[in-house]
Nucleic acid binder design. Sequence first.
DNA 1: CATTAACGTAACGATACGGCTCGTAACTAA
DNA 2: TTAGTTACGAGCCGTATCGTTACGTTAATG
Lengths: 212, 212
Amino acid sequence: MDEVRRPGRPRDAATDRAILRAARDVLLRDGYAGLSMEKVAAAAGVGKPTLYRRWSSRVALVGDVVWHSFHAAVPGIGRPGPQAGDGATQQLTTWFRAYASSAGDPRHAAMILALTAAAAESPHDAESLYRHHTRPQYEAIVDCLRSGVESGEFRADADLEAVADALIGSVLYQLLTRTGDAAPQRAEHLLDVLLAGLRPVTRDQPGRAPRD
Amino acid sequence: MDEVRRPGRPRDAATDRAILRAARDVLLRDGYAGLSMEKVAAAAGVGKPTLYRRWSSRVALVGDVVWHSFHAAVPGIGRPGPQAGDGATQQLTTWFRAYASSAGDPRHAAMILALTAAAAESPHDAESLYRHHTRPQYEAIVDCLRSGVESGEFRADADLEAVADALIGSVLYQLLTRTGDAAPQRAEHLLDVLLAGLRPVTRDQPGRAPRD
DNA sequence: CATTAACGTAACGATACGGCTCGTAACTAA
DNA sequence: TTAGTTACGAGCCGTATCGTTACGTTAATG
């Protein structure tokens, strides 16, 4: 997979890093609305064409910033269970604790919010952002839940995607409403309720509430 | 509470309605990013100062549009349980079904996404938007859950705010990731898991998973 | 009629978008 | 060495939006 050397002056890898770093700083300080290409270019000490040579738009740049920040600081974010030997319950718990805790870090919170803002304000960008930055993680969670069903840890009739939505969505909602201070405890408590609800039914306890 | 008539030409109530309607249409067609004050003014057949006389900023206008759209079309959105005689389980079910179903309507989806975009892109606006447009509903849900705890329908040790986060957040995440097609079923299934997890523990079934 | 304020029109300065052109630097191929 | 190609920083361009202002008109008060 060696890079094919093309004629002409090669791009400076240090410039890539400087831009990403500057964009991350601006995102932290001013939020997604406050991130302009000109501000990023100035902060990175580069010209605007240098930005547009690499990223076709503001959304694309922000997407890459989020991507790099996540993979630099939260290595296992894409894989819920680092230890394959653990049960699904333990894997899910480990991952969700890490995820909720990372959302408590302002650096990651800003990244998640930026992705959210980009997706929410423009339906067109939302699809591509989801495909590239969120779906792999989402599918890994569902896979983890599915393995828990196969091992008998979880109810077979549970809607696993609904559970994944609730896990990710609850953190997202907390970030949006700035209730994030109590996040770590709340993550633990949400796991309590969801894991209890996922437990296979016994004879004494029917699977559904009587009302319907 | 009669309006005190002040001297001078009074504001035209029809103009208010025309602006709100135009802003709603633009929001539906072009999303939050595509909503500009000039576009709204043009669509409403009104000058820009007329907009700024009523709303101090774009965010304020969008906030009011969401407010009016919700209260016009989803009357009970602020009060989970229309029938006070119902149990908390039934109240919660009724409300969440209505909420998830309304999110399936593109008109409401656009409103929720607009609020989300505004909150996500600017931390400053997020706080005031939350206070005025989301918190009452959120607190009503928590109150409903709390009444369920008091009546013995739900576990006393459950984190009710975590449950509320999960309910609202799951819908939000589905909207953001355009997985909203399966929303009605998923809402039902999430209720299944959460209500099962909220059920008070019995002697046969310990409250927590063994692993910790 | 005098006062007051909302109205539409038409600007304003500031800022950001995405693109473009300069002159220069860096690298490859002949 | 030389020509060709591409990246680079600096900066300008046209369009667009922001929030604001000035101005003349219209509609209500007293």
